[in-house]
Design a protein around this nucleic acid. Structure first.
Lengths: 125, 125
DNA sequence: TGATTATATTCCTTTATAGGAATGTATTTG
DNA sequence: CAAATACATTCCTATAAAGGAATATAATCA
């Protein structure tokens, strides 16, 4: 993947917020909606953008799509994601997002802490 | 400066090439033209773009405009420029640019090695 | 002062991107 | 199967950006 494409993915606030959250682990679309408080189209499109350019990957989990950072990232991508995490650490919007993520009910997501099988088919968000 | 603005500056190859060269020190516009082999408008516009967003600064030196990376860069900018330098080290285009830079006659630029006063008013490129 | 050199700006065209409304698709539940 | 839930896609509009041709500006030289 080209370096420029990485930067193209990083030059939108919504996408930075998505990537920031994904730094914590896999998430489903509705949780992004809940945390970012942005409309579904917006979230979905930006996730599609990131996926098309190989920054994230998605798998279907029952009714939900679970997104995560690509498992086999290039050195350039790794470096830039690390740099991003570092830059973002002090910034209000991103800290607030992480705070809301922690408070959110993630019961439909595979990142559930207790390791229980994910309860499927119930209302999520 | 916003983090997103930094990434906006980085999402174009020409600008990455400019920044890569500026990592070596200040340069005048005509040297960018020589090294990148791109038309003057293109170079000038991208430098203007970088300047408008605070990644580079420029000063007039007689007939020439000397561009350099901003002296007082934010932590985010520093981090990302360092990351860029790192990512770019192995890539063909950027290595080739640096090679051409080394071979170029930089007599009209303040980065002249021997510290002599810059000869002004002569033909540069 | 007029010519030359270096650089910036304006104008125009093309393409990319963001955002939202509406609609489509997949999956699960009852 | 019908309804509900989660998500994607299409269509449209507005705005930004890239690139080039032509022109303008600034400084220097002869």
């Amino acid at each position: 993947m080209e370096l420029v494409q990485i930067y193209q993915c990083l030059c939108d606030v919504t996408r930075l917020r998505l990537l920031n959250l994904l730094g914590q682990g896999p998430l489903c679309v509705c949780h992004f909606q809940t945390v970012l408080k942005e409309p579904q189209v917006k979230i979905s499109k930006h996730l599609g953008y990131l996926k098309a350019r190989g920054l994230v990957e998605a798998k279907r989990e029952g009714n939900w799509m679970i997104y995560q950072l690509v498992s086999k990232a290039s050195p350039e991508l790794k470096a830039n994601l690390a740099c991003l995490q570092d830059c973002v650490r002090e910034q209000a919007i991103f800290k607030a997002d992480l705070a809301r993520l922690r408070k959110a009910d993630l019961s439909c997501s595979p990142i559930k802490a207790d390791g229980q099988p994910v309860p499927r088919g119930r209302r999520c968000c």
